[in-house]
Design a protein around this nucleic acid. Sequence first.
DNA 1: GGGGTCGGTTTCCTGTAGGTACCTAATATC
DNA 2: GATATTAGGTACCTACAGGAAACCGACCCC
Lengths: 132, 132
Amino acid sequence: MATQHPPAPHDSTADDAPAQACPVTPVLDIVFSRWTTPILWTLHHYGRQRFVELNRNVGTITAKVLTQRLRQLERDGLVVRTYHPEVPPRVEYEISELGLSLAPLFAALTNWSEEHLPEVERARTAFDAANT
Amino acid sequence: MATQHPPAPHDSTADDAPAQACPVTPVLDIVFSRWTTPILWTLHHYGRQRFVELNRNVGTITAKVLTQRLRQLERDGLVVRTYHPEVPPRVEYEISELGLSLAPLFAALTNWSEEHLPEVERARTAFDAANT
DNA sequence: GGGGTCGGTTTCCTGTAGGTACCTAATATC
DNA sequence: GATATTAGGTACCTACAGGAAACCGACCCC
């Protein structure tokens, strides 16, 4: 599960600790593990949706992976799953209040993207040009 | 290289496009691909460092992966590599100005972490308790 | 001439994320 | 009775990221 970033947490004994102390690491596994941002974004953009809708609206994700990610997001309290025991079963997903609290973070992200992405682009072409 | 998030970019034709249009996706590959945050954090925390120092200061990363990530970060313009053609070669890495522009983003991240991580913790234990 | 240092590079090997395909229960429709 | 539907679950397989270890060149020390 915690395969995305450095291995062991740490007892946070201040300064001899290397980058495990990097304070953002745990958040990344929660919010920025693969597919989670597109899912959250889709839920935020289209509102509450059932499984198949979500499956269509998020890009090319397969049903298996979608359920995996949704379980994780549900476990972390970022999305709410409501199951209706009807005859063709109906399940709806929506963003939780905790999930909505990520909004400023996403805003900061898009903001940085708008301001600095072209600069990254330029750096890349310059780098590639320098290494013929 | 772009293995972390949804497949193809998109010509951004507004509304029929699904989650590829998620505006944060490209930034994630740049800033939040594996090991990049610990590296950036270490460079920011300890200042300019040479390769072996960095290798020690970032947690358990291997030299191979460290060079890969540093190349990527250099190419994206987030770190600056200075090579001194001395006898035991000396190479120093430091955060670029563009890299420093990520500071508010990291701040937002740590801020969210401090405010909401316990809530995630609670959600997890509640979820695990509900699924005996 | 043997060993050490620095900044990598190369080769080999493995774990695992993720894809494909097929299965289910319960009903409704044809 | 055949077929479709929903929300997944399961088995199998593959690709690739990343770890381990050996190697390198140019010089220094001993």
